[in-house]
Nucleic acid binder design. Structure first.
Length: 416
RNA sequence: GGAGAGGUUCCCGAGCGGUCAAAGGGGGCAGACUGUAAAUCUGUUGGCUUAGCCUUCGAAGGUCCGAAUCCUUCUCUCUCCA
């Protein structure tokens, strides 16, 4: 098997390929241009989105040429694959700004610079709005639509499920547009391979068929396993909602914590997929004698470093050590913080208000429950009276408060 | 276009005109146990100035001392027929 392909195989990415041998031969003979698409449906990617881009990273290192396709055009429609509900329709401006944000985030995983490291393939980022938005409907039907069989589309598993719940016509067209993307990328960029999540299989195959019918070269499709956590939940969802890459939506500290708290059984699997660590190095962590918590720390650090940078990763790691390991050096910088006006502290502030305002609790009722159930701490002291008042005397030596809700949620309160 | 079914709290889902802030489950949160894991057990789960008050059962009106429950109109979804 081709060496680049083998890397993906060994790291546990690959679910299926339209033609393993054909693709492997092609990759042996030339540096292949390939693409992965994302729809800019939100202001930030979350970790469920990024698996194919890690795969892209590995192929780029082997010299193949990645194209990240931002779906500025398809995003206007919404992909029904794997969804049980219809997507909300987003405004054009919204899609634009989302697309910009996503471009920046992808740059952390794949090198889109003009001069990538020696041996690495040059990567491009394109937006399908460039060719989709101005499509002429009649022309499109004549040229592209004629090659699609509705009968066949109806047999796809994803479509079947949606038929039971309702599928609007525009969504039904998604497959044609995605196929057209592949066709255009093939024609304009010489793209020969498309990768994506397992839910993209139908769309990818349809694109390959289209290219064949339009007399293009043989193209290939590669899909990745849907990464599940060992508890059966989908990756990327946490109690705080989706684990976003954007620091505004999900602080680097919380991001680090998400990885720090993965199940034992997932650690090695995630290292292979979500970090750039070498397989030899990862293998060391598979040793059952090795402390599992060390492995989790490493996973969390590596992943945080890729997404948020070395400095943030260190801050998050040190803050976590400070909070969870007795005797660790004080390092509060990475702990999420909130501010409180100094006048409020002088006047004394109720614990409930304090916890609610810091963002640790959703409402006073929530805070009351927390306190009553013994889960609230201020500077290491458990507060059991919901009527307790925190004043200037309660500040620590730095003039700050450290709130703790439950076992793991911390907030640093700075008096301003 | 016609006929029928239905929209209940984060989700699924129960709900005789008063005893409904609304059963049950899931999820979440907290406590215990632990390793910042999993599993398990217990408690909790609309808001507030919390023995009380306020706002929720698709939307707006109406009947009634009293409505998630009855009536009218509107709206959305689903199923069947055309």
């Amino acid at each position: 098997m081709n060496s680049a392909l083998k890397v993906l195989q060994d790291r546990g990415f690959i679910k299926d390929c339209t033609d393993f041998d054909g693709l492997s031969d092609l990759m042996d003979n030339e540096k292949v241009t390939f693409y992965v698409g994302v729809d800019p449906t939100g202001p930030s990617l979350h970790i469920g989105h990024i698996v194919p881009f890690f795969a892209m990273h590995h192929l780029q290192k082997e010299g193949h040429k990645p194209i990240a396709l931002v779906g500025g055009g398809t995003g206007l429609i919404g992909d029904p694959s794997g969804k049980t509900e219809m997507r909300k329709i987003l405004s054009v401006e919204q899609i634009q700004s989302n697309a910009e944000a996503i471009k920046k985030q992808l740059g952390k995983i794949v090198d889109f610079s003009d001069s990538p490291a020696p041996g690495c393939g040059k990567a491009k980022m394109l937006n399908n709005a460039d060719w989709l938005v101005d499509l002429n409907y009649i022309q499109f039907l004549r040229d592209i639509g004629r090659y699609f069989s509705v009968n066949r589309m109806l047999t796809f598993e994803g479509t079947k499920q949606r038929l039971e719940r309702g599928l609007s016509f525009i969504e039904f067209n998604y497959q044609l547009l995605q196929s057209y993307d592949f066709y255009m990328l093939n024609k304009n960029e010489g793209c020969r391979m498309q990768m994506g999540g397992a839910d993209q299989w139908g769309n990818i195959v349809a694109g390959i068929d289209l290219i064949n019918r339009m007399d293009g070269p043989q193209c290939y499709g590669l899909t990745f396993n849907l990464i599940m956590r060992s508890d059966g939940k989908k990756m990327g969802k946490s109690e705080k909602g989706a684990v976003f890459l954007s620091p505004e939506l999900y602080s680097p500290y919380d991001f680090y914590q998400y990885w720090r708290n993965v199940n034992d059984a997932d650690v090695v699997k995630f290292m292979k997929i979500f970090t750039f660590m070498s397989l030899e190095e990862i293998a060391e962590y598979e040793d059952p004698a090795r402390n599992i918590n060390e492995a989790k720390e490493r996973l969390a650090f590596e992943q945080t470093r890729i997404i948020h940078g070395e400095e943030e990763a260190e801050k998050a790691r040190d803050a976590a050590k400070h909070l969870f390991q007795a005797g660790a050096p004080a390092s509060k910088e990475g702990i999420p913080s909130a501010e409180i006006p100094s006048a409020d502290i002088d006047a004394g502030i109720g614990v409930l208000t304090l916890f609610t305002r810091s963002g640790l609790c959703a409402s006073n009722g929530d805070a009351r429950r927390l306190v009553t159930q013994g889960g609230a701490e201020v500077n290491g002291k458990r507060i059991e009276d919901p009527k307790a008042v925190i004043g200037r005397d309660d500040l620590d030596s730095d003039g700050e408060l450290l709130l703790k809700a439950g076992k793991k949620r911390y907030m640093r309160v700075v008096v301003k």
